[in-house]
Amino acid sequence: RLRTTITPEQLEILYQKYLLDSNPTRKMLDHIAHEVGLKKRVVQVWFQNTRARERK
Rank of each mutant, 00 (worst) to 15 (best):
Q16E: 05
Q44M: 08
T25E: 09
R41T: 15
N49F: 03
V36D: 01
E12L: 08
T4I: 12
P8L: 15
E35V: 07
I32G: 02
K56L: 03
T5V: 08
K27F: 06
R1D: 06
V42F: 04
R3H: 14
K56Q: 12
T4H: 05
L2A: 11
D21T: 04
I32A: 01
R53Q: 10
T5L: 08
T25S: 06
H31E: 14
R26L: 14
Q16G: 09
L2N: 14
Y15I: 13
T7H: 05
L29Y: 12
V43N: 03
R3W: 14
L20G: 10
L14Q: 01
P8K: 05
F47Q: 01
V42L: 10
P24G: 01
K56R: 05
R55M: 15
E12I: 04
L19S: 08
P24D: 03
R55Y: 13
V45W: 06
L19D: 07
K17H: 12
V36M: 04
H31Y: 11
E9G: 07
R53S: 13
L20N: 06
I6H: 06
R1Y: 12
L14D: 03
T25A: 07
A33S: 10
T5R: 04
T5M: 14
R51G: 08
E12M: 15
R55W: 11
A52T: 04
T7D: 09
A52S: 11
F47G: 02
F47R: 02
E9D: 10
K17L: 06
T50W: 08
F47L: 03
T7R: 04
L14F: 00
E35P: 02
V42H: 06
P8Y: 13
Q10N: 05
V42T: 12
K40S: 14
T50Y: 10
L38W: 02
L19N: 04
T50A: 12
T4S: 08
R51F: 07
K40H: 10
T5I: 08
Q16R: 08
R3L: 13
L38G: 00
I13A: 10
H31K: 08
Q44I: 06
R41P: 08
L2E: 13
R55F: 11
L19C: 10
L14H: 01
K56C: 09
R41S: 15
L29Q: 07
L11E: 11
